[in-house]
Design a protein around this nucleic acid. Structure first.
Lengths: 249, 249
DNA sequence: CTCTCAGTTTGATATTTATCAATTCAAATT
DNA sequence: AATTTGAATTGATAAATATCAAACTGAGAG
């Protein structure tokens, strides 16, 4: 593992409150690995041996059934996945593949489980992380069940704009087909819906998004604190698409 | 609180491993209350002051947006909800209403938080509960995104039959409109789909379900361990519809 | 026993969403 | 600059799902 990586991992909400001694012991049991792009590193159904921490690159979490795939989340540095399976010692429910060349730290699940039993702060951090993940998926499920595709897209774009600092212009952080899959629709549907939304205050040109009428977009999106968040205390990783960067900063 | 209730609550996976002393202290801070049927006890967005434990009756967890509602889960005795909001000290993401006259034990969230900090076994139980809830919602989201309505229904019926002990006949545990909402479709769609499924090995008459051709139904449902579970260690409450009772037992 | 009422089913229709095929586009490579 | 390749878009169509209204049903109330 590289020198600069350890402090970064230590800064993760999951690890920042635990005793230094326990953190070090966890990290001694861990190892880092770099994967090329488009590699399926974890297959759904695999035993949950290792907690994964993304240090560089990006990872898509997706699930598969009957030949279809669906994107469930994207994890970027420095985020972790998938804690729940490690804690329960159960198989992964989702697969993971790199979206680019990606560096991962792998922490043995058994060490996770033994360390949180002797470090209350770590246990509390795990709980917060899990509770955050749970709430994020509940939000995702709510969006899928309560909104139609136009509304989901509008809400997504509105939220991205908000989180980038209420900017009028930003860039999509992921490919459209991945976004479509995350939002629970086909790429064709997303494409057509984006065009239709031009009448509702948002113009998308390639990966560039321009909000022409914030209020109109908001009227379609009807953003809701209990669906679109944030619970945002920075502790929740691996459960939603990443925020866009403010283009001015 | 009634005499027989305490041991029942104590038997919950969430509470069964903690120190007796801490359990008693938690329970001293708690109180029980009986609600009539069809009462909205928790409204989404409310501050999470209290962990709820269902002792008698049944509770529907649902969410609401823009005038639409969607059932997210049903909690039966002795199950708890909603731990995640209490742990994070964040507002509830879902509303809760009684489906029948229901008795609930209410545990102050602040006591939950302070007790798990001094009782590692309780902390571990909370973690297991949360991880289980997380995985259950991930499964729900996977089903919604990967299966169409016929497949979701078929999988639901197949699973209910399995959990009742591979019986050919069982009774639906919830109203059809609630089931429809849980499965992410309209009641009309459910009704028509059930009729269509008669060609695929299952007959539904009122609330009675008769599986006429298990293999045919299975072929439609394509049950999948990573969607339909179980993770079943009994520790997960409040995250899925209840199992049917085997009619022979 | 009849009445009432909520839940369910059915029918007709509209809307939403998916599918498949054909282009277009844009970035990366030769 | 030309070529290649995967992504994105567009068009035509089909399938899935929702909506609205009406009729039906069965369990509980009077």
């Amino acid at each position: 593992m590289r020198d600069h990586e350890l402090p970064e991992v230590r800064r993760l909400p999951l690890f920042r409150n635990m005793l230094a001694e326990n953190f070090e012991s966890l990290m001694r049991a861990s190892y880092a690995q770099t994967f090329p792009a488009q590699l399926e590193m974890v297959r759904q159904g695999d035993p949950a041996d290792l907690l994964h921490i993304v240090v560089e690159g990006a990872v898509e979490l997706f699930s598969e059934w009957n030949g279809h795939q669906s994107t469930m989340a994207v994890v970027r540095p420095v985020g972790s996945f998938i804690l729940a399976a490690c804690i329960k010692d159960q198989p992964y429910l989702m697969s993971a593949r790199t979206m680019a060349r990606t560096r991962i730290i792998l922490v043995p699940a058994s060490d996770i489980r033994s360390v949180f039993r002797r470090d209350m702060e770590f246990a509390v951090s795990c709980m917060n992380e899990l509770a955050g993940c749970y709430r994020a998926v509940v939000r995702h499920a709510k969006a899928l069940k309560l909104r139609n595709s136009h509304e989901r897209i509008a809400a997504y774009l509105y939220r991205q704009s908000r989180y980038a600092g209420d900017v009028a212009t930003f860039t999509l952080t992921v490919e459209k087909r991945l976004l479509a899959s995350y939002l629970g629709m086909t790429a064709e549907n997303l494409s057509r819906a984006l065009k239709a939304l031009e009448a509702d205050g948002v113009k998308v040109d390639g990966s560039r998004v321009i909000i022409t009428d914030r209020e109109k977009l908001k009227a379609i999106a009807r953003p809701d604190y209990l669906i679109d968040g944030p619970d945002w205390d920075g502790s929740t990783s691996g459960v939603a698409l990443p925020f866009p960067r403010n283009e001015e900063g």
